[in-house]
Design a protein around this nucleic acid. Sequence first.
DNA 1: AAATGAATTTTGATTAGCCTAAAAATTCTC
DNA 2: GAGAATTTTTAGGCTAATCAAAATTCATTT
Lengths: 222, 222
Amino acid sequence: MLSFTEENYLKAIYKIYEKEKDVASTNAIAERMSTTAASVTDMMKKLAAKNLVIYEKYKGTRLSPTGHQIATTLIRKHRLWETFLVEKLDFSWEEVHIIAEQLEHIDSDKLIERLDDYLDRPKYDPHGDPIPNAEGKYTLREQIALNQLYKGDKGVLIGVKNHDDQFLSYLNDLKIGLGTKLEIIDKVMYDKSIKVKIDDQGPVLLTEKVSRNLFLKKTNQN
Amino acid sequence: MLSFTEENYLKAIYKIYEKEKDVASTNAIAERMSTTAASVTDMMKKLAAKNLVIYEKYKGTRLSPTGHQIATTLIRKHRLWETFLVEKLDFSWEEVHIIAEQLEHIDSDKLIERLDDYLDRPKYDPHGDPIPNAEGKYTLREQIALNQLYKGDKGVLIGVKNHDDQFLSYLNDLKIGLGTKLEIIDKVMYDKSIKVKIDDQGPVLLTEKVSRNLFLKKTNQN
DNA sequence: AAATGAATTTTGATTAGCCTAAAAATTCTC
DNA sequence: GAGAATTTTTAGGCTAATCAAAATTCATTT
Protein backbone atom coordinates (compact mmCIF):
# COMPACT_ATOMS: atom_id res chain seq x y z
CA MET A 1 0.00 0.00 0.00
CA LEU A 2 1.32 3.40 -0.98
CA SER A 3 0.94 6.58 1.00
CA PHE A 4 -0.82 9.62 -0.31
CA THR A 5 2.58 11.30 -0.55
CA GLU A 6 4.26 8.52 -2.48
CA GLU A 7 1.40 8.52 -4.97
CA ASN A 8 1.74 12.25 -5.47
CA TYR A 9 5.45 11.87 -6.19
CA LEU A 10 4.74 9.26 -8.84
CA LYS A 11 2.17 11.51 -10.44
CA ALA A 12 4.61 14.44 -10.42
CA ILE A 13 7.25 12.33 -12.16
CA TYR A 14 4.70 11.21 -14.71
CA LYS A 15 3.63 14.78 -15.45
CA ILE A 16 7.22 15.92 -15.90
CA TYR A 17 7.90 12.98 -18.15
CA GLU A 18 4.79 13.80 -20.22
CA LYS A 19 6.28 17.21 -20.97
CA GLU A 20 10.00 16.59 -21.11
CA LYS A 21 10.00 13.10 -22.60
CA ASP A 22 13.15 12.53 -20.60
CA VAL A 23 14.20 11.79 -17.06
CA ALA A 24 12.65 13.92 -14.33
CA SER A 25 15.33 15.97 -12.59
CA THR A 26 15.37 16.22 -8.82
CA ASN A 27 14.78 19.95 -8.97
CA ALA A 28 11.87 19.61 -11.38
CA ILE A 29 10.20 17.14 -9.04
CA ALA A 30 10.90 19.39 -6.05
CA GLU A 31 9.27 22.32 -7.81
CA ARG A 32 6.16 20.35 -8.76
CA MET A 33 5.82 19.00 -5.24
CA SER A 34 6.56 22.37 -3.61
CA THR A 35 9.32 20.85 -1.55
CA THR A 36 13.11 20.85 -1.46
CA ALA A 37 15.56 18.90 -3.59
CA ALA A 38 16.83 17.20 -0.44
CA SER A 39 13.40 15.77 0.34
CA VAL A 40 13.08 14.56 -3.21
CA THR A 41 16.39 12.72 -3.04
CA ASP A 42 15.19 10.93 0.11
CA MET A 43 11.93 9.97 -1.49
CA MET A 44 13.54 8.80 -4.72
CA LYS A 45 15.67 6.37 -2.75
CA LYS A 46 12.58 5.08 -1.05
CA LEU A 47 10.58 4.70 -4.24
CA ALA A 48 13.56 3.08 -5.99
CA ALA A 49 13.80 0.55 -3.16
CA LYS A 50 10.16 -0.31 -3.84
CA ASN A 51 10.88 -0.63 -7.56
CA LEU A 52 8.48 2.12 -8.48
CA VAL A 53 11.11 4.36 -10.08
CA ILE A 54 14.51 4.03 -11.69
CA TYR A 55 16.72 6.48 -9.92
CA GLU A 56 20.32 7.22 -10.84
CA LYS A 57 22.31 9.52 -8.60
CA TYR A 58 22.84 12.90 -10.21
CA LYS A 59 21.15 11.66 -13.39
CA GLY A 60 17.47 11.90 -12.56
CA THR A 61 14.46 9.61 -12.13
CA ARG A 62 12.18 7.66 -14.45
CA LEU A 63 9.11 5.58 -13.69
CA SER A 64 9.38 1.81 -13.62
CA PRO A 65 6.58 -0.12 -15.35
CA THR A 66 4.83 -0.53 -12.00
CA GLY A 67 5.30 3.13 -11.16
CA HIS A 68 3.96 4.11 -14.55
CA GLN A 69 0.91 1.94 -14.06
CA ILE A 70 0.18 3.54 -10.69
CA ALA A 71 0.62 7.02 -12.11
CA THR A 72 -1.75 6.49 -15.04
CA THR A 73 -4.31 4.98 -12.71
CA LEU A 74 -4.13 8.13 -10.61
CA ILE A 75 -4.64 10.27 -13.71
CA ARG A 76 -7.54 8.04 -14.69
CA LYS A 77 -9.16 8.40 -11.30
CA HIS A 78 -8.56 12.13 -11.21
CA ARG A 79 -10.17 12.70 -14.59
CA LEU A 80 -13.09 10.38 -13.94
CA TRP A 81 -13.86 12.16 -10.68
CA GLU A 82 -13.62 15.54 -12.41
CA THR A 83 -16.08 14.30 -14.99
CA PHE A 84 -18.41 13.09 -12.26
CA LEU A 85 -18.29 16.41 -10.46
CA VAL A 86 -19.09 18.40 -13.58
CA GLU A 87 -21.59 16.07 -15.23
CA LYS A 88 -23.48 14.79 -12.23
CA LEU A 89 -22.98 17.31 -9.45
CA ASP A 90 -23.01 20.35 -11.67
CA PHE A 91 -19.66 21.80 -10.63
CA SER A 92 -17.95 24.12 -13.07
CA TRP A 93 -14.66 23.21 -14.65
CA GLU A 94 -12.48 25.51 -12.58
CA GLU A 95 -13.72 24.08 -9.27
CA VAL A 96 -13.09 20.40 -9.76
CA HIS A 97 -9.33 20.07 -9.75
CA ILE A 98 -8.83 20.64 -6.02
CA ILE A 99 -11.51 18.15 -5.05
CA ALA A 100 -10.31 15.54 -7.52
CA GLU A 101 -6.80 15.84 -6.05
CA GLN A 102 -8.29 14.27 -2.94
CA LEU A 103 -10.67 11.83 -4.58
CA GLU A 104 -7.96 10.35 -6.81
CA HIS A 105 -6.40 8.68 -3.76
CA ILE A 106 -9.47 6.67 -2.84
CA ASP A 107 -8.43 3.06 -3.07
CA SER A 108 -11.00 0.75 -4.67
CA ASP A 109 -10.69 -0.79 -8.11
CA LYS A 110 -14.35 -1.64 -8.13
CA LEU A 111 -15.26 1.96 -7.41
CA ILE A 112 -13.30 3.28 -10.39
CA GLU A 113 -14.86 0.79 -12.76
CA ARG A 114 -18.37 1.43 -11.47
CA LEU A 115 -17.84 5.17 -11.74
CA ASP A 116 -16.53 4.75 -15.28
CA ASP A 117 -19.66 2.79 -16.21
CA TYR A 118 -21.92 5.28 -14.51
CA LEU A 119 -20.40 8.09 -16.56
CA ASP A 120 -20.74 6.04 -19.80
CA ARG A 121 -17.02 5.44 -20.11
CA PRO A 122 -16.02 8.97 -21.05
CA LYS A 123 -12.89 9.43 -23.16
CA TYR A 124 -12.22 13.07 -22.21
CA ASP A 125 -12.58 15.01 -19.00
CA PRO A 126 -14.19 18.46 -18.52
CA HIS A 127 -10.99 20.18 -19.64
CA GLY A 128 -10.72 18.05 -22.76
CA ASP A 129 -7.89 15.90 -21.38
CA PRO A 130 -7.96 12.22 -22.33
CA ILE A 131 -8.97 9.70 -19.66
CA PRO A 132 -6.71 6.62 -19.65
CA ASN A 133 -8.56 3.30 -19.68
CA ALA A 134 -7.92 0.58 -17.09
CA GLU A 135 -4.80 -0.46 -19.03
CA GLY A 136 -3.45 3.08 -18.99
CA LYS A 137 -4.04 3.72 -22.71
CA TYR A 138 -5.75 6.79 -24.07
CA THR A 139 -6.41 8.30 -27.47
CA LEU A 140 -5.23 11.73 -28.46
CA ARG A 141 -7.30 13.77 -30.89
CA GLU A 142 -6.05 15.96 -33.66
CA GLN A 143 -6.06 19.39 -32.13
CA ILE A 144 -4.44 22.72 -32.79
CA ALA A 145 -3.93 25.77 -30.59
CA LEU A 146 -6.04 28.78 -31.55
CA ASN A 147 -2.97 30.96 -32.05
CA GLN A 148 -1.76 28.60 -34.81
CA LEU A 149 -4.83 29.22 -36.97
CA TYR A 150 -5.35 31.86 -39.65
CA LYS A 151 -7.92 34.47 -40.46
CA GLY A 152 -11.07 32.79 -41.65
CA ASP A 153 -10.37 29.47 -39.91
CA LYS A 154 -13.18 27.92 -37.87
CA GLY A 155 -13.10 25.34 -35.11
CA VAL A 156 -14.66 23.90 -32.00
CA LEU A 157 -13.00 24.08 -28.59
CA ILE A 158 -12.02 20.58 -27.47
CA GLY A 159 -9.42 21.28 -24.79
CA VAL A 160 -7.49 23.82 -22.74
CA LYS A 161 -3.78 23.73 -21.99
CA ASN A 162 -3.84 25.77 -18.79
CA HIS A 163 -6.11 24.56 -15.98
CA ASP A 164 -5.73 27.62 -13.86
CA ASP A 165 -8.77 28.85 -11.90
CA GLN A 166 -8.42 32.37 -13.16
CA PHE A 167 -8.03 31.36 -16.77
CA LEU A 168 -11.02 29.04 -16.69
CA SER A 169 -13.20 31.62 -14.96
CA TYR A 170 -12.20 34.15 -17.59
CA LEU A 171 -13.36 31.72 -20.27
CA ASN A 172 -16.64 31.27 -18.41
CA ASP A 173 -17.13 35.03 -18.51
CA LEU A 174 -16.56 35.01 -22.26
CA LYS A 175 -19.02 32.11 -22.58
CA ILE A 176 -16.27 29.91 -23.94
CA GLY A 177 -16.43 26.26 -22.94
CA LEU A 178 -15.81 22.84 -24.47
CA GLY A 179 -17.90 22.58 -27.65
CA THR A 180 -17.94 26.33 -28.26
CA LYS A 181 -17.56 27.26 -31.95
CA LEU A 182 -14.88 29.82 -32.71
CA GLU A 183 -14.09 31.65 -35.93
CA ILE A 184 -11.06 33.86 -36.51
CA ILE A 185 -12.19 37.27 -37.73
CA ASP A 186 -8.79 38.90 -37.66
CA LYS A 187 -5.23 38.51 -36.39
CA VAL A 188 -3.26 41.50 -35.18
CA MET A 189 0.36 40.89 -36.18
CA TYR A 190 1.77 43.48 -33.83
CA ASP A 191 0.85 41.79 -30.55
CA LYS A 192 -0.44 38.46 -31.90
CA SER A 193 -3.89 39.07 -30.47
CA ILE A 194 -6.80 37.46 -32.27
CA LYS A 195 -10.33 38.68 -32.91
CA VAL A 196 -12.79 35.78 -32.77
CA LYS A 197 -16.49 35.21 -33.14
CA ILE A 198 -17.80 33.06 -30.28
CA ASP A 199 -20.83 30.83 -31.00
CA ASP A 200 -22.42 33.49 -33.22
CA GLN A 201 -21.90 36.18 -30.56
CA GLY A 202 -20.28 39.50 -31.40
CA PRO A 203 -16.49 39.40 -31.89
CA VAL A 204 -14.07 39.47 -28.97
CA LEU A 205 -10.36 40.15 -28.82
CA LEU A 206 -8.18 37.45 -27.24
CA THR A 207 -4.53 37.99 -26.34
CA GLU A 208 -1.92 35.53 -27.48
CA LYS A 209 -1.56 34.30 -23.92
CA VAL A 210 -5.17 33.18 -24.08
CA SER A 211 -5.25 31.83 -27.63
CA ARG A 212 -2.16 29.72 -27.01
CA ASN A 213 -4.09 27.85 -24.33
CA LEU A 214 -7.14 26.93 -26.37
CA PHE A 215 -7.13 23.70 -28.36
CA LEU A 216 -9.51 23.43 -31.30
CA LYS A 217 -10.65 20.89 -33.76
CA LYS A 218 -10.64 22.67 -37.10
CA THR A 219 -13.95 22.52 -38.89
CA ASN A 220 -12.98 24.21 -42.18
CA GLN A 221 -10.68 22.79 -44.85
CA ASN A 222 -7.65 24.47 -46.43
CA MET B 1 -7.19 21.57 9.22
CA LEU B 2 -7.44 18.17 10.86
CA SER B 3 -5.55 15.07 9.89
CA PHE B 4 -7.25 11.90 8.79
CA THR B 5 -6.17 10.38 12.11
CA GLU B 6 -7.52 13.16 14.29
CA GLU B 7 -10.86 12.92 12.51
CA ASN B 8 -11.01 9.20 13.13
CA TYR B 9 -10.37 9.70 16.83
CA LEU B 10 -13.25 12.17 17.05
CA LYS B 11 -15.52 9.73 15.29
CA ALA B 12 -14.49 6.95 17.65
CA ILE B 13 -15.27 9.08 20.68
CA TYR B 14 -18.63 10.00 19.18
CA LYS B 15 -19.51 6.35 18.57
CA ILE B 16 -18.57 5.36 22.11
CA TYR B 17 -20.59 8.24 23.46
CA GLU B 18 -23.59 7.20 21.34
CA LYS B 19 -23.57 3.82 23.08
CA GLU B 20 -22.41 4.62 26.60
CA LYS B 21 -23.95 8.07 27.03
CA ASP B 22 -20.98 8.84 29.22
CA VAL B 23 -17.33 9.76 28.93
CA ALA B 24 -15.23 7.67 26.56
CA SER B 25 -12.51 5.83 28.47
CA THR B 26 -8.97 5.74 27.15
CA ASN B 27 -9.14 1.98 26.78
CA ALA B 28 -12.45 2.07 24.95
CA ILE B 29 -11.02 4.55 22.46
CA ALA B 30 -7.88 2.46 22.07
CA GLU B 31 -9.95 -0.60 21.30
CA ARG B 32 -12.07 1.16 18.69
CA MET B 33 -9.00 2.66 17.03
CA SER B 34 -7.04 -0.60 17.20
CA THR B 35 -4.20 1.14 18.95
CA THR B 36 -2.72 1.32 22.44
CA ALA B 37 -3.85 3.31 25.45
CA ALA B 38 -0.53 5.17 25.37
CA SER B 39 -1.21 6.47 21.88
CA VAL B 40 -4.70 7.51 22.89
CA THR B 41 -3.44 9.52 25.85
CA ASP B 42 -1.05 11.40 23.57
CA MET B 43 -3.79 12.13 21.09
CA MET B 44 -6.28 13.23 23.72
CA LYS B 45 -3.81 15.86 24.93
CA LYS B 46 -3.42 17.09 21.41
CA LEU B 47 -7.13 17.21 20.70
CA ALA B 48 -7.78 18.90 24.03
CA ALA B 49 -5.19 21.56 23.16
CA LYS B 50 -7.19 22.22 19.99
CA ASN B 51 -10.42 22.42 21.99
CA LEU B 52 -11.97 19.50 20.18
CA VAL B 53 -12.37 17.33 23.27
CA ILE B 54 -12.64 17.75 27.01
CA TYR B 55 -10.06 15.48 28.50
CA GLU B 56 -9.55 14.89 32.20
CA LYS B 57 -6.61 12.81 33.30
CA TYR B 58 -7.70 9.40 34.51
CA LYS B 59 -11.35 10.39 34.04
CA GLY B 60 -11.93 10.01 30.33
CA THR B 61 -12.78 12.15 27.30
CA ARG B 62 -15.88 13.89 25.99
CA LEU B 63 -16.40 15.85 22.78
CA SER B 64 -16.44 19.64 22.86
CA PRO B 65 -19.16 21.34 20.82
CA THR B 66 -16.69 21.82 17.97
CA GLY B 67 -15.54 18.22 18.22
CA HIS B 68 -19.14 17.05 18.20
CA GLN B 69 -19.86 19.09 15.11
CA ILE B 70 -16.90 17.59 13.28
CA ALA B 71 -17.89 14.08 14.30
CA THR B 72 -21.48 14.40 13.09
CA THR B 73 -20.29 15.89 9.84
CA LEU B 74 -18.11 12.81 9.35
CA ILE B 75 -21.09 10.56 10.02
CA ARG B 76 -23.12 12.62 7.60
CA LYS B 77 -20.50 12.30 4.90
CA HIS B 78 -20.04 8.60 5.53
CA ARG B 79 -23.74 7.86 5.22
CA LEU B 80 -24.25 10.07 2.19
CA TRP B 81 -21.39 8.36 0.38
CA GLU B 82 -22.78 4.95 1.31
CA THR B 83 -26.10 6.00 -0.13
CA PHE B 84 -24.41 7.19 -3.30
CA LEU B 85 -22.53 3.94 -3.72
CA VAL B 86 -25.64 1.82 -3.32
CA GLU B 87 -28.17 3.97 -5.15
CA LYS B 88 -26.09 5.26 -8.01
CA LEU B 89 -23.21 2.86 -8.44
CA ASP B 90 -25.16 -0.26 -7.61
CA PHE B 91 -22.95 -1.52 -4.80
CA SER B 92 -24.53 -3.84 -2.28
CA TRP B 93 -24.92 -2.83 1.32
CA GLU B 94 -22.12 -4.97 2.72
CA GLU B 95 -19.50 -3.49 0.37
CA VAL B 96 -19.90 0.19 1.01
CA HIS B 97 -18.58 0.69 4.52
CA ILE B 98 -14.89 0.28 3.69
CA ILE B 99 -15.03 2.67 0.78
CA ALA B 100 -17.05 5.26 2.70
CA GLU B 101 -14.43 5.17 5.46
CA GLN B 102 -12.12 6.75 2.94
CA LEU B 103 -14.60 9.04 1.21
CA GLU B 104 -15.80 10.58 4.47
CA HIS B 105 -12.48 12.40 4.80
CA ILE B 106 -12.77 14.30 1.54
CA ASP B 107 -12.79 17.93 2.49
CA SER B 108 -15.28 20.08 0.58
CA ASP B 109 -18.47 21.51 2.03
CA LYS B 110 -19.81 22.20 -1.41
CA LEU B 111 -19.27 18.59 -2.40
CA ILE B 112 -21.32 17.27 0.52
CA GLU B 113 -24.20 19.62 -0.19
CA ARG B 114 -24.18 18.84 -3.91
CA LEU B 115 -24.09 15.15 -3.19
CA ASP B 116 -26.96 15.49 -0.75
CA ASP B 117 -29.01 17.28 -3.41
CA TYR B 118 -28.09 14.74 -6.05
CA LEU B 119 -29.37 11.94 -3.82
CA ASP B 120 -32.58 13.88 -3.07
CA ARG B 121 -31.63 14.64 0.52
CA PRO B 122 -32.01 11.12 1.89
CA LYS B 123 -32.87 10.72 5.57
CA TYR B 124 -31.57 7.17 5.98
CA ASP B 125 -28.59 5.31 4.57
CA PRO B 126 -28.56 1.82 2.99
CA HIS B 127 -28.43 0.20 6.44
CA GLY B 128 -31.35 2.25 7.71
CA ASP B 129 -29.17 4.55 9.82
CA PRO B 130 -30.24 8.19 9.99
CA ILE B 131 -28.20 10.76 8.04
CA PRO B 132 -27.55 13.93 10.05
CA ASN B 133 -28.36 17.16 8.23
CA ALA B 134 -25.85 19.98 7.84
CA GLU B 135 -26.61 21.09 11.41
CA GLY B 136 -25.95 17.63 12.78
CA LYS B 137 -29.61 16.86 13.53
CA TYR B 138 -31.32 13.65 12.50
CA THR B 139 -34.67 12.03 13.09
CA LEU B 140 -35.09 8.63 14.66
CA ARG B 141 -37.99 6.46 13.61
CA GLU B 142 -40.08 4.25 15.76
CA GLN B 143 -38.52 0.88 15.31
CA ILE B 144 -38.50 -2.43 17.13
CA ALA B 145 -36.16 -5.40 16.92
CA LEU B 146 -37.68 -8.50 15.33
CA ASN B 147 -37.05 -10.58 18.46
CA GLN B 148 -39.31 -8.25 20.46
CA LEU B 149 -42.35 -9.02 18.30
CA TYR B 150 -44.97 -11.73 18.78
CA LYS B 151 -46.54 -14.45 16.70
CA GLY B 152 -48.77 -12.87 14.10
CA ASP B 153 -47.01 -9.51 14.09
CA LYS B 154 -46.09 -8.02 10.74
CA GLY B 155 -43.53 -5.38 9.83
CA VAL B 156 -41.17 -3.90 7.28
CA LEU B 157 -37.40 -3.96 7.68
CA ILE B 158 -36.13 -0.42 8.15
CA GLY B 159 -32.72 -0.97 9.70
CA VAL B 160 -30.03 -3.36 10.86
CA LYS B 161 -28.05 -3.14 14.06
CA ASN B 162 -25.00 -5.09 12.98
CA HIS B 163 -23.15 -3.89 9.86
CA ASP B 164 -20.92 -6.87 9.54
CA ASP B 165 -20.09 -8.14 6.05
CA GLN B 166 -21.02 -11.68 6.91
CA PHE B 167 -24.31 -10.76 8.49
CA LEU B 168 -25.36 -8.55 5.60
CA SER B 169 -24.38 -11.17 3.02
CA TYR B 170 -26.43 -13.73 4.91
CA LEU B 171 -29.43 -11.42 4.69
CA ASN B 172 -28.81 -11.02 0.96
CA ASP B 173 -28.94 -14.80 0.61
CA LEU B 174 -32.28 -14.86 2.42
CA LYS B 175 -33.52 -12.04 0.15
CA ILE B 176 -33.95 -9.82 3.15
CA GLY B 177 -33.18 -6.14 2.59
CA LEU B 178 -34.53 -2.73 3.63
CA GLY B 179 -38.22 -2.61 2.73
CA THR B 180 -38.68 -6.38 2.98
CA LYS B 181 -42.01 -7.37 4.59
CA LEU B 182 -41.74 -9.85 7.43
CA GLU B 183 -44.44 -11.73 9.30
CA ILE B 184 -43.90 -13.84 12.39
CA ILE B 185 -45.34 -17.29 11.81
CA ASP B 186 -44.06 -18.82 15.01
CA LYS B 187 -41.69 -18.28 17.92
CA VAL B 188 -39.77 -21.19 19.45
CA MET B 189 -39.54 -20.48 23.15
CA TYR B 190 -36.79 -23.00 23.76
CA ASP B 191 -34.04 -21.25 21.73
CA LYS B 192 -35.83 -18.00 20.94
CA SER B 193 -35.62 -18.68 17.21
CA ILE B 194 -38.36 -17.22 15.03
CA LYS B 195 -40.11 -18.55 11.98
CA VAL B 196 -40.89 -15.74 9.53
CA LYS B 197 -42.52 -15.29 6.16
CA ILE B 198 -40.35 -13.13 3.93
CA ASP B 199 -42.10 -11.00 1.28
CA ASP B 200 -44.65 -13.75 0.59
CA GLN B 201 -41.89 -16.37 0.22
CA GLY B 202 -42.02 -19.68 2.11
CA PRO B 203 -41.22 -19.44 5.84
CA VAL B 204 -37.63 -19.36 7.13
CA LEU B 205 -36.20 -19.93 10.59
CA LEU B 206 -34.09 -17.13 12.04
CA THR B 207 -31.97 -17.53 15.18
CA GLU B 208 -32.22 -15.00 17.98
CA LYS B 209 -28.79 -13.68 17.08
CA VAL B 210 -30.19 -12.70 13.71
CA SER B 211 -33.60 -11.44 14.83
CA ARG B 212 -32.04 -9.20 17.46
CA ASN B 213 -30.23 -7.33 14.70
CA LEU B 214 -33.23 -6.58 12.51
CA PHE B 215 -35.21 -3.39 13.12
CA LEU B 216 -38.77 -3.26 11.88
CA LYS B 217 -41.56 -0.82 11.58
CA LYS B 218 -44.66 -2.66 12.76
CA THR B 219 -47.49 -2.68 10.23
CA ASN B 220 -50.20 -4.37 12.32
CA GLN B 221 -51.95 -2.90 15.33
CA ASN B 222 -52.24 -4.39 18.81
C1' DA C 1 -6.22 2.78 56.02
C1' DA C 2 -3.33 -0.43 53.68
C1' DA C 3 -3.10 -3.56 49.89
C1' DT C 4 -4.13 -5.25 45.54
C1' DG C 5 -5.37 -5.01 40.79
C1' DA C 6 -6.96 -2.47 36.93
C1' DA C 7 -6.74 1.60 34.23
C1' DT C 8 -4.09 5.27 32.73
C1' DT C 9 -0.11 8.12 32.00
C1' DT C 10 4.81 8.86 31.39
C1' DT C 11 9.12 7.73 29.36
C1' DG C 12 12.05 6.68 25.83
C1' DA C 13 12.26 4.96 21.00
C1' DT C 14 10.92 4.39 16.15
C1' DT C 15 9.37 5.75 11.47
C1' DA C 16 7.81 8.86 7.65
C1' DG C 17 8.23 13.07 5.65
C1' DC C 18 10.21 17.19 5.70
C1' DC C 19 13.77 20.98 6.45
C1' DT C 20 18.52 23.78 6.41
C1' DA C 21 23.23 23.96 5.68
C1' DA C 22 27.31 21.93 3.95
C1' DA C 23 29.64 18.96 0.75
C1' DA C 24 30.08 16.74 -3.62
C1' DA C 25 29.24 16.03 -8.48
C1' DT C 26 28.03 17.81 -12.81
C1' DT C 27 27.66 21.27 -16.32
C1' DC C 28 28.77 25.61 -18.24
C1' DT C 29 31.88 29.19 -19.76
C1' DC C 30 35.76 31.22 -21.34
C1' DG D 1 40.41 22.10 -19.41
C1' DA D 2 40.30 25.12 -15.18
C1' DG D 3 37.27 27.72 -12.55
C1' DA D 4 32.57 29.18 -11.75
C1' DA D 5 27.85 28.24 -11.47
C1' DT D 6 24.38 24.99 -10.94
C1' DT D 7 22.45 20.79 -9.46
C1' DT D 8 22.21 17.17 -6.43
C1' DT D 9 23.33 14.61 -2.39
C1' DT D 10 24.61 14.07 2.45
C1' DA D 11 24.38 15.12 7.28
C1' DG D 12 21.91 16.34 11.12
C1' DG D 13 17.56 17.59 13.04
C1' DC D 14 12.47 18.48 13.55
C1' DT D 15 7.47 17.00 14.15
C1' DA D 16 3.48 13.78 14.11
C1' DA D 17 1.91 9.44 15.19
C1' DT D 18 2.95 5.39 16.93
C1' DC D 19 4.62 1.58 20.40
C1' DA D 20 6.46 -1.20 24.64
C1' DA D 21 7.69 -0.92 29.17
C1' DA D 22 7.78 1.44 33.52
C1' DA D 23 5.54 4.40 36.71
C1' DT D 24 1.50 6.40 38.58
C1' DT D 25 -3.27 6.90 39.95
C1' DC D 26 -7.76 5.14 40.93
C1' DA D 27 -11.13 1.83 42.76
C1' DT D 28 -12.13 -1.82 45.69
C1' DT D 29 -11.53 -5.00 49.15
C1' DT D 30 -10.16 -6.36 53.39
